[in-house]
């Protein structure tokens, strides 16, 4: 699903922020990405969500060689990658509803599909009454939930999350983690970058650990979590949203 071979990355003419990174994440795997600030977590995520290209090495995403891929091949790949940014990166002029709806609209969903899926997911993440609210009127936790809903609305093949539970209480963190796990069970390859060791220790999944741009702990392969409390179920219609952004 995701394969890195001796990948190095630098910004401009600076020093390499990632060095000789090699790993392979199998389809449907679940990993935490850990490391200190500046270790290269965000840069690694950027390579995975195709925001940057490596300075050297090979990257394969969903069977496509990213280094040699033509530019016009990338949008299709990107529509299958859900990203939760640390700073949310919500569009300030769009309501919570429209922010979450954006990936579906880009993927070509009908208005009815957008309405059904977005409303259901926003209700599920506890934002039923904030659908029409602009991000500037939302709390940090609410923004984070909107960002997560936006990342998972079209059930991506790969889900990348950068500190996704940093601004929510324990109950909501558990709820969101449950969402990631459910998605992972549906086949979504999931990578969560976090400092939250409580979150990391809450489930036994492989870790990718970065130290000064080098990967020091390799994933053992597929190891999906399956012993978690059956906390909250996903919306009934949610799996039906699968495939909206497949083409």
């Amino acid at each position: 699903m995701i394969r890195f071979d001796n990948v190095g990355m630098r910004y401009g003419s600076g020093d390499e922020v990632l060095r000789d990174v090699s790993f392979e994440l199998l389809r449907g795997s679940f990993h935490f990405l850990t490391g200190r600030s500046g270790a290269g977590k965000s840069s690694l995520l950027k390579l995975m969500y195709l925001s940057e290209r490596p300075s050297r090495g090979l990257i394969s995403m969903m069977g496509v060689d990213i280094v040699t891929a033509k530019r016009k091949a990338l949008p299709r790949l990107r529509r299958n990658i859900g990203v939760v940014f640390q700073d949310y990166r919500l569009l300030d002029h769009l309501s919570a509803y429209d922010n979450v709806a954006l990936p579906l609209r880009i993927g070509g969903a009908t208005r009815a599909e957008v309405r059904d899926y977005v409303e259901e997911l926003l209700v599920w993440v506890g934002l039923k009454d904030r659908m029409k609210s602009l991000p500037s009127t939302l709390s940090g936790g609410e923004k984070q939930r909107v960002a997560i809903a936006r990342a998972v609305i079209n059930r991506p093949t790969v889900l990348l999350a950068d500190e996704p539970t940093g601004n929510v209480d324990d109950e909501m963190a558990a709820r969101l983690l449950r969402l990631f796990i459910e998605l992972n069970r549906l086949g979504t390859t999931t990578v969560i970058a976090t400092h939250d060791m409580g979150l990391v220790d809450s489930i036994e999944v492989p870790r990718l650990h970065l130290e000064a741009g080098k990967l020091v702990q390799l994933p053992p392969g597929i190891d999906p979590p399956n012993d978690l409390p059956n906390a909250l179920r996903l919306p009934e219609a949610f799996p039906q949203a699968v495939g909206l952004a497949r083409d």
Binding site: Y49, L50, S51, K72, P75, R76, L77, R78, R79, N80, I81, V83, R89, L91, H93, L102, P103, I106, G107, A245
Partner: peptide
């Protein structure tokens, strides 16, 4: 805004 939409897979 353009970068975010671009990263969501919007075509040029």
């Amino acid at each position: 805004t353009v970068e975010i939409v671009h990263m969501m897979g919007a075509k040029d």
